[in-house]
């Protein structure tokens, strides 16, 4: 047993001594290219390990850098998405401002054309039903709005004020069955009364009806219908709508349906006539 241990020890010692001598000799021998043989052998032996380590380090570095890039991209993506959302909101806002400016410009043009004083008001409420009959404005008595004042849009007559408060007013639309406007056809001055058809239970049609038009009158589809001013509410010459259909009707009158010019469901700003036409005062009568 001791002999075996001695043999193993002697072989280990031999190996250690041989290796150490090879190292010492290799360190002295020129291996070329400015390297000793030892350096060259060690370099040759370790270069694959170095290559592997370098490759692994490079791969890990790449992976880490990709991860960091990915995180950066994700962050950029989130930031850009937020920015896009903000810009989209801003664009929508600007579009609304443009549309509003357009509407206000049209109203202003109308206001300049009209020979009467008007007040601009904003629609702040309306019936939440398909065929609503009233609107609420943000101007009231303190702003100069009075009962029965005519309400206009850039495209035509809207209705009249039926209730007024200090800072708000309610408008009855032409669509209301209880409304009425003294009207004439622009082409041949045929007169009538334009009324709404929408009732209390929101039943009816969005078209207006022109009543009291003689069955002998010349009425054609497409004729423009204007206010005649005879009702002393709506100034004369304002657009009400266009004739959509002409029927035979019953009795002495035709059945004339009128499509209103004012887009009641899209109204946002209106003009309210400040001073209604004066009522004629009769001082003498024939008895």
């Amino acid at each position: 047993m001791a002999r075996v241990i001695d043999t193993r020890r002697s072989r280990l010692l031999l190996a250690a001594l041989v290796v150490s001598h090879l190292v010492v000799i290799g360190h002295q021998v020129d291996g070329g290219e400015g390297l000793s043989l030892l350096q060259r052998v060690v370099f040759k032996l370790l270069s694959p390990v170095q290559r592997v380590v370098a490759a692994v380090a490079h791969g890990v570095g790449q992976a880490w850098s990709s991860y960091l890039d990915l995180r950066g991209v994700r962050e950029d993506n989130r930031r850009l998405a937020e920015r896009v959302a903000g810009l989209e909101g801003q664009v929508q806002y600007e579009q609304q401002r443009v549309l509003e400016a357009e509407r206000l410009r049209e109203l202003l043009e109308l206001r300049q054309v009209l020979p009467i004083a008007t007040i601009a008001a904003e629609v702040v409420g309306r019936d939440g039903l398909p065929w609503f009959r009233t609107l609420t404005l943000d101007k009231g008595r303190e702003d100069g709005i009075a009962l029965d004042a005519a309400v206009l849009s850039a495209t035509g007559i809207v209705g009249r004020v039926v209730a007024v408060g200090p800072r708000a007013a309610r408008v009855q639309l032409l669509l209301d069955r209880d409304s009425g406007v003294a009207a004439i056809l622009e082409r041949n001055r045929v007169a009538g009364v334009v009324c709404g058809q929408v009732g209390y239970a929101d039943q009816g049609k969005p078209d207006l009806v022109m009543k009291y038009v003689s069955s002998l009158a010349d009425v054609a589809v497409g004729d423009r219908v204007l206010s005649s001013g005879l009702d002393r509410i709506y100034p004369k010459g304002l657009v009400i709508g266009r004739v959509r259909s002409v029927g035979a009707g019953a009795g002495l009158f035709r059945e004339v349906l009128v499509t209103p010019s004012a887009g009641f469901d899209r109204l946002e700003e209106v003009l309210v006539v400040r001073d209604p036409p004066e009522q004629p005062v009769l001082t003498e009568t024939i008895r």
Binding site: D6, S10, L17, V18, H21, I25, Q28, V29
Partner: peptide, 30 residues
């Protein structure tokens, strides 16, 4: 024995290398 022989060889070889060796020391020792 082999251990004594090895150690004596290393010592004698290095002495020989240092005193009578060529440009590379350790060849005689090995």
């Amino acid at each position: 024995g082999e251990i004594h022989g090895m150690l004596a060889g290393v010592a004698a070889g290095w002495v020989q290398d240092i005193h009578f060796g060529g440009p590379v020391a350790g060849l005689s020792a090995l």
